[in-house]
Design a binder for these strands. Structure first.
Lengths: 192, 192, 192, 192
DNA sequence: GATGAATGAGAGTTCATTCAT
DNA sequence: AATGAATGAACTCTCATTCAT
């Protein structure tokens, strides 16, 4: 990697393209924060200093772009599950901490929670991505807690994730603390 | 002069207009269910078989229309609060049953829950209408339950209502049961 | 006329209608002052406390209404011509004073001057009314001044009236004094 | 590296866009002549054979479009002022000739004179453009004539320009010769 | 591969005018 | 005769998406 793969022939384009893609992801992330995930395509292109068509080339649908922007964080969240299970005092505690991470993620991504619940076909890919990565993790935590006798068994991880996602909508409101509401849900899971 | 002939001219027209207004409300309700409360004005007009301006005459803003569509049910829900408190075995039970009514209402009104959470200024009136009517009722139930020692005191009714509203988003999904999630929240309120 | 022609049969309607028409004229005059002569029909109806259709019954076109509102003042202006010719020191002085009256009239009628110049067919009646009543008067004054050797002969009264009308557009502007500009025109007519 | 290859990508596009912009300006000019400067945006787009959004891309506001259409002629008129002052027999003669140029311009642009007098906020930019470019020129001519003792001093250039603009309204009428009326005004300025 | 110009559908809103009551 | 509800055409402006260069 001592070469600078930029200037003249062959792989130049690819390097350019990769750089472009990264600029795009940065720009999109910034735009998402500022205006939500349904910010106009042009705004993103403008921030990235590229033409709109470049976005379409790299990310055919908006969902593809959103997924790419949040890929790392989703993966990190998925990977945290088993770790927390190992570290925590109990499976229920692990679940609580893991859910907290997920909430952390969502409340800082304006409009993402809304998009995740949208039944718009354009967001199906986005929805699947999150579901495929995170629901199994959540399921494992739920099962562990059930086996430990801490919560009622038979709780559906998809439903729980979706509910939590819903609760994270509207993060800007000072009178509404999503984390608190989610805490009630997790508390409510407890066996009596 | 026992007759009131002056009044005939007035109400006669109004009978026609009222019929139209009802057609409009029905059409709007149906359109809301199918496409959400931000369905294009033209679609509602089309369903009702009227021109667009007729909607504007009856309901100057979209929020006015939504409020009108759901007025009766909101009022019924508000009135149910004290009654349930009197009838139920405990304040917490009353709260649970009342919240259930609210969920019943929201899950059958596709798109309404979304709109209630929207920070779009156009929906401010709508939001206020719901908040003004229902938050006080919820607050009373929460206080009663806290006084009875069933739940932790200091729960904010607005936050709870908002959370419940959020949980009711996406009612059409067969894998997601809003009622169950709300049940967990109510259970989570319980003092341990 | 000792009866109060209002309550029951026969001529009642006519009296009502006449009263209505007058209310309408007053309302229209007020609305014209406040919002210009192209104020929405509904506003006029609202001021007068009548339905919009009542306006259409009495005054089929907007031009008819405008003419009715300003009829008296146009006639007064027309009648002032011969009088001023008799009173004034010279025909040119009479012309100047008469034109001043016309300007007085126009600058206080917001939007009227614009409407008079409009080539919109709807205003043809209005245009004709003014032209038919005032151009002959102006013509007489011009001829008298020409015969007296004060101005060049052959000036067209229609053109002059139209020009004066034009100069009266935009009366609200503090940096523009229509009367001054019209004064220049009248001065410019003078023979050298 | 004597070539400037980086510039080829840029101007190539621009050539196309510029052609389009010119088509747009032509179409707008034609539409303005036919229907006035408040002709619907769609009509202009239709004439130019482009979509409406293309107009908005090139000219965000209507005033921008109007200014662009008449820019060259306004500038030419502004530049003619000093030249005429140098060439003409007297300042008053220069003024007369310059005003004639302005009238030439306005009477062939149907609807422009009307728009210039409009107090509609959308036309404020347009108004300013004309005022800023032409009033100073007119002022210079007026001052020169006043200094030469040909006209009364203290005439306001803005008022004069505005009056002339007004007189140019309704150019299509065969019985009305704006140039003649303006001539009377200029004559009327003369000191006696 | 990238650009950004062009597209055109679509949404909200207003108002003159007609028409059933 | 009067009413005012209903109509629907008209207009502006925005944006996701495509396509020639």
């Amino acid at each position: 990697m001592a070469e600078t793969p930029a200037q003249t022939a062959g792989p130049r384009k690819r390097a350019d393209a990769r750089r472009n893609e990264e600029a795009l992801l940065d720009a999109a992330a910034a735009a998402f924060v500022e205006s939500g995930v349904d910010v106009p395509v042009r705004d993103i292109a403008g921030r990235a200093g590229v033409g709109v068509a470049t976005i379409y080339r790299h990310f055919p649908t908006r969902a593809d772009l959103i997924v790419a922007v949040y890929r790392h964080q989703v993966l990190a969240c998925a990977e945290a599950g088993p770790r927390l299970l190992a570290e925590s005092a109990s499976p229920h505690a692990a679940l609580a901490r893991w859910v907290d991470l997920f909430v952390d993620f969502l409340v800082t991504k304006r409009g993402l929670a809304e998009a995740l619940q949208s039944d718009d076909a354009a967001f199906a890919t986005l929805h699947s991505y999150f579901v495929d990565r995170l629901v199994p993790v959540c399921d494992k935590l739920l099962r562990a807690a059930a086996e430990a006798g801490e919560i009622t068994s038979g709780q559906d991880a998809y439903e729980l994730m979706r509910g939590i996602g819903n609760l994270c909508i509207g993060g800007g409101n000072p009178r509404y603390d999503a984390r608190h509401m989610v805490g009630l849900v997790i508390e409510g899971l407890r066996r009596r």
